[in-house]
Each structure stands twice: as C-alpha cells, then as structure tokens.
Nucleic acid binder design. Structure first.
Lengths: 328, 328
DNA sequence: CTGAAAGCGCTTACAG
DNA sequence: CTGAAAGCGCTTACAG
C-alpha cells in the first residue's frame, strides 16, 4: 500500500532518451511553435512510456502559474438526481475544455482552496465575503457564486428556488385552486432556500389575486406530518406546494393518517422528481429542473471567464416544467 | 469576476516585516525546533495579515514533496443518505488529521490524480490495474480500493453488498418465508453490485436449507414492475429482497397494480432507508448501513497508512441492521 | 535568535 | 532542429 519509490522526472526521461529536458517538455506538451523531428519525437515518447513518466502537477503549476482544476463547493446534504445531473454535466463540459472538476462538501473551511489552488470555484452554496476574499488570496481567478445569489434568473431577479415556487403556485392556481399552503422542511440547513420558495408561491398568488399562501413545517414522518396538517386545516387550503418530493411524500402520508385523499381533499405538488415520486400513492405531480442544463451553462460561464472573455450576465439556469401526475 | 493582481508571496511578507523569507516561513509554520522572539513573531503575523498572504500550495507541495489532499472517487450516480454520511464523516475525520478531502465522479480518467497529485486516493468505485499503476506514477502514496474489492468484510470474505443481501435473506427466512425472490435494478451501472447482492441472498438461503432465490429486473415504474412481478409469480415466492429502497418501492407499486398486498401476499425488504421508505404504503422494512461508521474507519485507515504505520487489514465497514416496518 | 542559499520539477524565453 | 539557464514560491539544512 505504501510506496517509497522515487518519482520519475522529466530529467530521467531526458537521460533515457539522450536529449535535454527542454526537448522532452516540448514533445510532451505538443508545443505548436516548435518543429521536432519525428525520430526525436518518438524517442521521447518511448522513453516516457518505458519509464512510466507522468509530469508532476505541482511543479508544472508553479511554473505555469495557472491551474486547470475547478472546485465545486457542494452543500452538506444528500444530492438528488437533479444535483447529480448538474455535477455530471458540469464535469463533462469542463473536461472537454481541458479542465478537471473536483467537489468538496461545504464546511466553511478555507483549507480547500488553499490546498488545491483551483483556477475557479463554483458555489452550489453561499459564499461569505470573507470566503470570497480568501479565495482571491489563494489565487482563484473565477468565482461563481451560488445560484441562489447570482444564478438568479434574470427576468424578475428572482432566485431559482423562488422560480420553482412560482411555477408550483401557478400550476395549482391554473387548476382552479385559490387557497394554497406551503409545506416546508424542518431541516435547519434548508430554511434559507425554503423562504425563497415560499416567496415564489406568494408571488404566483398575488399575480392571480389569490390570498397569500399559509405555510407549515412538515417533518419526514407520517404522524408528525399529520399533526402539522391538522393544525393547518382551519385555514382550509385546497392544495399544497411542497418544498420537494420528500416533503410532498410526507404530506401524502399525513393525509392518509387523517383519512384525506389526494387530489380531491387536498392537491399536492412536489419538486425534483425523485424516483419515489412516480411510485407514490397517488403518483406525485412535481416540478422538474433540468440539472444537466444548469451544469452545462455554468461550465460555459466558467470557461468563458477563464479565457478572459466576458461570460455574459450569469449562467442561465434553464427551463423548469411541471410533470403532471395524479396528486394534483 | 476576473482578477489580474499579482500573487502575494512570502517575499512580500518578509520585505513588509523587514525580515527574511526563512523567518517568515518558520513563524507561519510554527516550526517547533525554532525559537522565535515574540516581537519577531508578531511582526511576521501582522505583515502577513496586512498583505493578505496565503502560502501558495503548489510551491509548498513541490518543496515538501507531500500533499495533504485525499481524493475520493465516487461512482457516477446520485448518492443516498448512506453515501452522504460516509463522505461527510470521512471528510471530518481526515480534516481533524490535517487532511483535505475532495471528490470526483468516476469517469475512468487519469486526469484527476495527475491534476491534483493527492497523497491518497479512496475508491468508492472499482479501480482497474491500469488506473492503480497510473496513480502510483502520479505519486499517490496510499490507495484504498472500493469496498466491493477490499473493504470486503473479513469474516467470510464477502463483500459489503453481499453482506446486505445475506442480512435481508436471513431476516425474511427468520420470518418463516422459504421461497425468496430478488428484485434487481435495471441500471447497467449497478449490475456488478447487484450480482453480489444476489449471491448474499443465496448464501442465506443455503445456510437455512431453503431453495435458491429466483431473481428479476424491476424498472422504477409501476407498470413495468407489475409486468416483471407477474412473470415471476409462477415460482410462487412469498417474499422479495429488493436491491435498494427505490427498487422496493417499485415492487410495492407493481404489487398494487396487480392487486397484491404487502406483507400478506408478498413481503418486501429494501436497503438504504431513504426518507421515502418510512413514508411508503405500507412503510418499508429495510436494511440500514451506518455510512458514518464506514467513513470514519476508512479515514483511520488512510491516516495510519499515510503515517507509515501498518493500517491493519482493511477498513471495517461496521454493522448492518434491519429496520423492521410493515412491508415484511 | 536570524539569514543566505539550495533545490523540489517543470516550462519557456533565449542562444546556437 | 536542439540545449543551457532562469525562475515560479516555498521550506529547510547550514552558517553565523
């Protein structure tokens, strides 16, 4: 498991090939402005192969002064399929541009960017001004703040999360509902996003002249969800916008405990379209976000900014759409 | 967004403090073998603060020859709560030892370890011999292969996934079932793990003298699941071990379509305990893995190996347990 | 108690 | 077409 072997350097390759380190470097990096004999070329390549040479990143970085690593800072919670698609497409698009993506779960620690000196940092989480300053100091060239901050969709300046709320509300209102409720998660780490969501639903209601939505916290447990629901029935909502599909599932479970049926007694709409959504009883109507699209547009933004071009406003987060099923 | 400012180096700090780079380095790294005047100390610290100095990782690495970054290679699929707890605890335990964890979604690309030159690579995914050789070349000191390869629990030499299958089988058999079925996922990326799972269930059956389990592929869709189930009814199983909770939910949905009830017509047990499991109809009996424990024990292994100590066999993956609910 | 100097491995002007 | 040399920013023996 442990290895004490000395590192193979370009000097070794040069010696093995009977050439200089400069030539080795030129061949290995395919420098266009240099013309190299085919014979020399081959000699270098073969020597490198034979020795198992692989350039040492820190040294190369120190010399070139520019990293090709992009760091993605992820919020500290499990990732659904949308988040996964986002990361996957972001990585693929960056890779095609010669950039490597690595992720780190947010813990507010400066150590990460200092430890890897990335060319860019993408936040799927909020950055404090102190963190941003610290990144700059660590030599990070491009900083893409969280979607909640800057990936905010331009029209209306509303955040992504609030857009989802707006779409949920609009869908329910379009179905004829007037009194809406919001089911929010009890996870403290989600409260900021939850607030955005609620404001999106409220916006939809006001646009249609419907009363402001009421809201409640719904734990991921049938009994607790039933209690939360029971406390809300006084205001007689006819439909609920859930923070995400899990919360929606909890609402459905609570309703079952209370002897209520969806969508007749109460319509329910979720968000994320997790696999369990379509398997629920009844199958859950939900809002889907094209995570892949978000990933690709963030990648384009990073690549442009790194190339010194004006990346344009902020990344486009793409279209949301509702997947109509039976719960609403 | 882009910044052209020159990097602040230790030379700048030295100049600002009116001292040498050596002294700056000694103070900033708190070298124990050096005694430094309190006044000098403070002068360095203040100058560094004033200039916003942060040591440049590549340079330090090049000199010290040893990174404090650990790379985790993750399989390319969404992570459930178990995987998340594993990553979280692994990161925390490494952090306490001065190591920084970063992750990368597997894509079989050598670029990752070459780009960041980590001290250790932990695989939550299988490594080919070529990849391992490539890591060695890139200077990776410690390589921890996937649990499926080496985190395999010692007793019996069975892999983690197969242990889960065994526990599922044992639980069902203990409930009096004799004819078991396995519900496997249709995702091609999961086939290897699925095979392990099946072999675990088979092992449990043989230990009890029950017939070998039959198996079927169950897509995450009620209709398709019903079809799969219908094709299986000929062999008259009385219980099914699902690959994970999502597949279990699909089995439940398929049964509903067929007019079957759990657990009376068919008992169902899942694995992972995702939030949707306890909210299902009926609430899903499942197997829970202590992801946090796995993360901590992998961290201990990495830390010991990096310190040159014998890390002992391979990381302990900790106890599995079944969460009994209504579906079995 | 502090500093001058070497060297980690790489790339890239600059000579030849 | 190829090579000798400088220098990226850091740490650490080695002198003083």
């Amino acid at each position: 498991v442990a290895g004490v072997r000395r590192r193979v350097t370009s000097t070794d390759v040069a010696r093995e090939a009977g050439l200089s380190r400069a030539t080795v470097s030129y061949v290995l990096n395919d420098v266009p402005s240099r013309s190299i004999t085919e014979a020399t070329r081959r000699r270098v390549l073969e020597a490198a192969e034979r020795l198992g040479y692989s350039p040492y990143a820190p040294a190369r970085l120190l010399r070139k002064g520019r990293s090709d690593v992009v760091l993605l800072v992820l919020p500290d919670r499990p990732q659904g399929p949308v988040g996964h698609a986002m990361v996957e497409q972001l990585a693929a698009a960056l890779d095609a541009a010669g950039l490597t993506l690595v992720s780190h779960l947010s813990a507010g620690d400066a150590a990460v960017w200092n430890a890897i000196a990335p060319a860019a940092v993408v936040g799927a989480t909020l950055f404090t001004p102190e963190q941003t300053a610290d990144m700059r100091r660590a030599g990070v060239e491009v900083i893409v703040p969280s979607d909640e901050q800057a990936l905010a969709i331009q029209r209306g300046g509303a955040s992504w999360s609030s857009q989802i709320g707006r779409l949920q509300g609009r869908h329910l209102l379009g179905l004829g509902h007037r009194r809406l409720a919001c089911a929010l998660p009890d996870d403290p780490r989600l409260q900021d996003v939850a607030r955005q969501r609620l404001s999106g639903v409220r916006k939809a209601c006001r646009a249609e002249g419907a009363p402001d939505p009421v809201h409640m916290t719904v734990p991921l447990d049938a009994r607790a969800a039933a209690d939360a629901l029971a406390g809300l029935l006084g205001s007689a909502p006819s439909a609920v916008c859930a923070f995400n599909d899990e919360v929606a599932l909890a609402v459905l479970a609570g309703m079952r405990t209370l002897g209520l049926r969806a969508p007749d007694d109460l319509a329910v709409i979720g968000a994320d379209d997790i696999p369990a959504a379509r398997l629920a009883v009844p199958p859950l109507t939900t809002v889907i976000v094209d995570g892949g699209h978000v990933g690709r547009s963030v990648a384009a933004y990073v690549i442009a900014a790194l190339a010194g071009e004006d990346p344009g406003a902020t990344p486009d987060v793409g279209a949301l759409s509702v997947v109509p099923r039976d719960s609403a």
